[in-house]
Design a protein around this nucleic acid. Structure first.
Length: 741
DNA sequence: TTTAATGGGTTTTTT
DNA sequence: ACCCATTAAA
């Protein structure tokens, strides 16, 4: 039985309120998660609601998982059934796996991630002969997604197109949708859209879900988009038991279609709505809170809250103005090291605007042998080898999945040329078939357009897939993946490659089999495992046991740390260059800054860099401090260094030059050579080489030349040879069959 | 057919 | 600095 004594009056009111739609405006650190978990526990224990009648939607899988545990902890008895806790997307997938037949899709549809989508758009651009420079696949995709989320069909987009470019976009959109459907695939937007469409078209299904989920709780309501809003409305239509929890000051997903109006207009949308404000902050010191509030209160689009805390003032907000990114990272790690040692800080986060900024911090932390966890960036399921193998699994479930087919058909190499695939695609287009159907047709009744060799390869690929479709029924999840690895020769190909990377890839694949084994013990089917892989978010990588975490401002939402470093507070970064266009964009950046600041419990460090290299350019550019820095009252700030007029390198110059590492990085940074530095220094052709400089050699095609340089040894020797009349050529000894003259 | 070099274009944040 | 498409070479 949850003790409501643990709650303050407004929290308690929010937990107990039962009069219909409820909006809880929960300021940062005001116990939002607590309200949701207590409310769920209260519904179950005190009001006799069956757990399975409760649906709670969170932003990440991790948040859902955490909430589940906390609810379990609050309850005195073990539950017969569980409340359904998930993200919008996973919820939609669950519904669709059962019901999508009503919309003419196969229940084993594939989920397309951004890479699959880009491939599709690229194909569509080619087919339509629209390979224009003005609209890359990524940009096109963004605009298609925008249209989709606004409920615009390709036809509607076409009708309202004002210029030829918009018309082209509309036809691209149409082709893209057609290709998705052919592949029996849904993109991320579709997951939500199709769920809404389903509930629209099949009221009896909507009703069934209304009856199943009598109580609906939505976390992070400020970040819901239009489609999610529609879904929420459909789900709570009957019982009106919606409890939305959010904070308009933390709305940071506008670029993904989040509509801050959803929270600002809650009372208009739900006329009988009750609004409760949680304004007591339990997380941060007064100083941190004041600093953050000073920034965000410049925004106009707010409902307004007054956050307070009964914790003391604490430390001032520290400000460090760094010379360059390395200096900034050096500062951060220098502060962190002793704090971890003497436990002045239990947990530390270094937050930045863009993932690209993480590198400097990683280097600095590693140099001090400080353990850290990086959240975001490249996730496990985004690695090429993982996606390759998952593509085979996807095909076993859904052979129409052209994206997966294109990905897997020639990896590992099966000798299918680009020309062959072009021909297959053209056969598919001609007969209005999926790629898989085209292959089947071609094998059954050869048109003669493909070489005998290509036909053999396709035959092999087909029997492989048929085998997988069968073995999938028979084998356990991990055994199925092992089977794929073996039969496709994927691991063998990696072994043969024998490069520094291939070893890591093989390990990753072993890890994939492990993940499958874990899924198996959770009782997941292949579909569910694949869904999970498609829907993991980068925020899910966060490991609360880590003492130092590196992540973007966005990923940090919902988390808290004893110490927080906000790095790179410069114009163009925070606020970001691309958000400077309109006031709404600036306001969102300001909220982002607010979210970052309010993650801190004890200490907040702000830093900026005065010279930053952009796009790996040679030249570092002068930066300007973020306007948000000026919005923090100066009496709350303690400057850690005087000014940038007299920059002094933090690392002693002599040290920096003498250490091998810094010499290398020095050379690496200044040097013009491409590729990774110091990995393979061009060997001077010395006496020990079999091909000393000046050796005369004969080449079958170029005739006699003079060796200028040789790299590597034995079979791998690479020679630079100057041939009169042909210029310099780089040749591999192994292939070039050179003759000494 | 496959692989490595080269040149051109690009990057916010992510379910 | 990184990703991609194109091209040269075996």
């Amino acid at each position: 039985m949850p003790s409501l004594q643990d709650l303050n009056p407004p929290q308690r009111e929010a937990v107990e309120y039962s009069g219909g739609p409820l909006l809880v405006l929960a300021g940062a650190g005001s116990g939002k998660t607590r309200v949701i978990t207590y409310r769920i526990a209260h519904l179950i224990e005190d009001r006799g609601v069956k757990p399975e009648n409760i649906l709670a939607v969170t932003f990440t899988n991790k948040a859902a998982e955490q909430m589940k545990q906390r609810v379990a902890h609050l309850l005195s008895a073990r539950l017969e059934s569980w409340p359904h806790l998930s993200t919008f997307h996973s919820f939609a997938v669950r519904v669709l796996r059962r019901e999508i037949g009503r919309l003419g899709y196969h229940g084993e549809f594939s989920i397309y991630d951004e890479a699959d989508q880009a491939r599709l758009v690229k194909g569509a651009l080619q087919e339509l002969g629209l390979e224009e420079r003005t609209l890359g696949p990524r940009a096109a995709l963004a605009r298609i997604s925008y249209a989709k989320n606004r409920g615009l069909s390709p036809e509607a987009l076409y009708r309202q197109a004002a210029d030829p470019a918009s018309e082209r976009l509309a036809s691209l959109y149409a082709r893209y949708e057609q290709k998705l459907r052919e592949a029996q695939a849904l993109d991320f937007d579709d997951l939500l859209l199709k769920a809404v469409e389903l509930f629209d078209q099949a009221p009896e299904v909507a009703l069934a879900y209304n009856e199943r989920f009598i109580h609906l709780l939505v976390d992070e309501y400020q970040d819901t988009n239009r489609i999610q809003y529609q879904l929420i409305r459909q789900l709570c239509q009957r019982h009106q038991n919606l409890c939305a929890v959010g904070d308009e000051d933390q709305s940071i997903y506008r670029w993904r279609g989040a509509d801050i109006q959803n929270i600002l207009n809650f009372e208009r949308d739900f006329p009988a709505a009750k609004i409760i404000r949680l304004e007591q902050n339990y997380r941060s010191t007064q100083t941190i809170l004041d600093a953050a509030t000073a920034v965000v209160s410049r925004n106009r689009a707010r409902k307004g809250k007054r956050l307070w805390t009964d914790r003391g003032a604490g430390f001032k907000v520290a400000l460090y103005e760094a010379w360059d990114a390395e200096d900034e990272a050096e500062f951060v790690s220098e502060e962190i090291a002793p704090a971890l040692q003497d436990h002045a800080a239990e947990s530390v986060a270094v937050l930045y605007r863009t993932n690209a900024q993480s590198r400097a911090f990683e280097e600095a932390l590693r140099k001090r042998s400080l353990d850290y966890r990086l959240v975001g960036g490249f996730s496990f399921y985004e690695r090429a080898e993982i996606k390759d193998v998952l593509a085979y699994a996807r095909l076993a479930a859904n052979p129409q999945d052209s994206g997966a087919l294109l990905r897997s058909i020639n990896t590992p190499r099966r000798g299918l040329s680009e020309a062959t695939m072009k021909a297959v695609e053209s056969i598919a287009r001609g007969g209005n078939l999926s790629l898989w159907q085209a292959i089947e047709q071609e094998l059954a009744a050869p048109s003669g357009r493909l070489s005998a060799r290509a036909m053999r390869s396709l035959e092999g690929f087909r029997s492989l897939l048929r085998e997988f479709a069968e073995s999938r029924q028979r084998l356990s999840l991990p055994a199925f993946f092992r089977h794929i690895l073996e039969r496709t020769g994927y691991v063998d190909a990696l072994r043969a490659e024998n490069s520094s990377e291939s070893e890591g890839r093989i390990e990753n694949l072993a890890e994939l089999v492990n993940a499958a084994a874990e899924a198996e013990t959770r009782g997941e089917s292949l579909s569910e495992f694949l869904d999970h892989a498609a829907l993991v978010s980068s925020a899910d990588q966060y490991d609360e046991r880590a003492r130092v975490s590196l992540m973007t401002f966005h990923s940090a939402k919902g988390l808290e740390f004893s110490w927080v470093f906000l790095a790179g507070l410069e114009e163009g970064l925070v606020p970001h260059q691309l958000s400077l266009g309109d006031e709404a964009g600036i306001e969102e950046e300001r909220r982002l800054c607010y979210v970052g600041m309010t993650r801190a419990r004890e200490r907040l460090f702000l830093s900026r860099v005065s010279r930053r290299r952009s796009y790996g350019k040679e030249l570092q550019e002068e930066t300007r401090r973020s306007r948000f820095l000026d919005e923090v009252p100066s009496e709350l700030i303690e400057r850690l260094n005087d000014s940038l007029l007299t920059p002094k390198p933090r690392v002693a110059w002599t040290n920096a030059v003498n250490s091998v590492e810094s010499v290398e990085s020095f050379l690496g940074r200044r040097g013009r050579s491409r590729g990774r530095m110091g990995e393979r220094s061009p060997g001077v052709a010395g006496e020990r080489s079999r091909w000393p400089r000046g050796t005369k050699v004969r080449h079958a095609k170029y005739g006699v030349g003079t060796v200028l340089e040789s790299e590597g040894e034995g079979e791998e020797t690479k020679l630079t040879v100057s041939f009169p009349g042909y210029g310099q050529k780089k040749l591999l000894e192994r292939y070039a069959s050179l003759e000494r003259v």
